[in-house]
Computed example of a mutant assay.
Amino acid sequence: MTRLTRQLAKTCLVISLSGSALAYAGYDQHSRFNEFAAELEKEYQIPPAETRRWLAESKKLDSVLEAIARPAEKTLEWDSYQDIFLTSKRIEGGKAFMAKHAGLLAAAEQKYGIPKEIITAIIGVETFYGSRQGSYRVLDSLATLAFDYPKRPIFWRELKAFFSLAKEENLDPATVKGSYAGAMGYGQFIPTSFLAYAVDGDGDGQRDLWANPADAINSVANYFNVHGWRAHEPVVQRARVSGNQYQQAVNDNLKPKWTVAKLAAMGVSTIEPANAEDPASLVKLIGKQGAEFWLAHYNYYVITRYNHSRLYAMAVYQLSEALKQ
């Protein structure tokens, strides 16, 4: 090997090693780091040096990018979706959760006006009553989505909020676990929801949604209260359709833009009576026996504020009904 050849080989090795280092570097090395750090400092007063230290520990997770591309709500119909969330095991688990935390649930219902069955059903659908909170480091999940998933700039905002809540709650960002999308705790709050709706349910000075049922239960109840849950009003009921006019209202909008009376004029009828002037929407799901039609009241819409999916809202509602029995 000539001297020139040896020098070229060394140069290639250096380039190769530096390329590998960059490939596996934390997001503190990303080209948009300075932009992110400047926004974080402006919005949450977190110094860029601290942001760099945190993001230096982050890792890109291809599994997160794969998971975010195929959410269950977009790949399943109701006939399969209900088999996941309306099992006898989940129902019995919910009853056990309600029995164990009866006092906390009763107090939250009294304070916020949210039925204990709805609170429990949310936690049951989200994490099987706290037992499946997610194994991803939230730092890695949100950094991956914020910097390498351009279709969802929302995660840029969520990563900033995550650093803020970590600061507020005195948490090490590198130790917090959650879902592939950065949702955390019993109720799977994303960081902006944590900052806005998480509450200290037992007065210990901390909002611990991972290990403290009092905080988790009260935070879910507070979320629904702030989003306009209407106490003692219905959620959804079976409907019948006739003619063709109803088709213009099928799954047209999550937020009700019709009234019960207007839907009735389009050929939508229900078994149970409903106030003619109440806001409502017409939901069509594909169940095990084919198409199902449901008259959805305002509280159904409130459930979709937690997860923007008709399937999710129906699973929560039907699980809550099973927990009443």
Rank of each mutant, 00 (worst) to 15 (best):
L159T: 07
H232W: 09
R52D: 03
L139K: 05
A322H: 09
C12T: 11
Y180A: 11
N251H: 13
L8T: 11
A221Q: 06
I84Y: 06
Q237E: 12
K42Y: 06
V199E: 01
R238P: 00
Q245F: 09
P213A: 10
Y149E: 04
K255D: 07
Q29R: 08
Q45C: 08
I46T: 10
R137T: 15
S164G: 00
A198Q: 11
Q110P: 01
R137S: 15
I122Y: 05
L159V: 10
L285K: 09
S164W: 05
N212P: 00
V220Y: 07
L311D: 01
P48E: 04
P234I: 13
L263K: 01
R132A: 13
L285M: 10
A49K: 12
E41W: 09
K89S: 14
A23G: 13
W54G: 07
K111R: 10
R70K: 14
G185M: 01
N299E: 06
N251C: 13
G290N: 13
R305F: 04
H297W: 07
D172F: 01
G93A: 15
R32P: 02
D208V: 13
R240T: 07
R32T: 07
L104T: 10
E117T: 15
V14Y: 06
F85S: 06
I15C: 14
T11G: 12
K324A: 08
Q45L: 12
G124W: 02
Q247M: 08
N244M: 12
Y317H: 14
R52Q: 02
L142F: 02
I303R: 03
V260K: 03
G93M: 14
D200Q: 02
E66R: 14
A181F: 07
P71A: 13
A67G: 09
Q45D: 14
A315L: 06
S141N: 02
G26D: 11
L4C: 03
L40V: 14
E92I: 13
P191Q: 06
R157K: 12
S242L: 11
K284W: 01
A108I: 09
L76M: 12
V125Q: 04
N299S: 08
Y312M: 12
L195R: 14
S31N: 04
G287I: 11
A198R: 10
Y149N: 05
K111N: 05
L145W: 00
S16W: 11
L65G: 02
E50N: 14
S58Y: 01
E272K: 13
A264H: 13
A221S: 09
R132G: 00
L13P: 03
D83H: 02
A96K: 11
Y129W: 10
Q188E: 08
L4A: 11
L22Y: 10
Y24K: 06
P273M: 04
R137M: 14
D252A: 15
E158H: 13
A221F: 07
M314D: 04
A49C: 01
K160C: 04
P47E: 03
I123E: 00
I119A: 02
Q237G: 09
N170Q: 08
K151S: 12
Y81N: 08
L17Q: 07
S88D: 15
P153T: 10
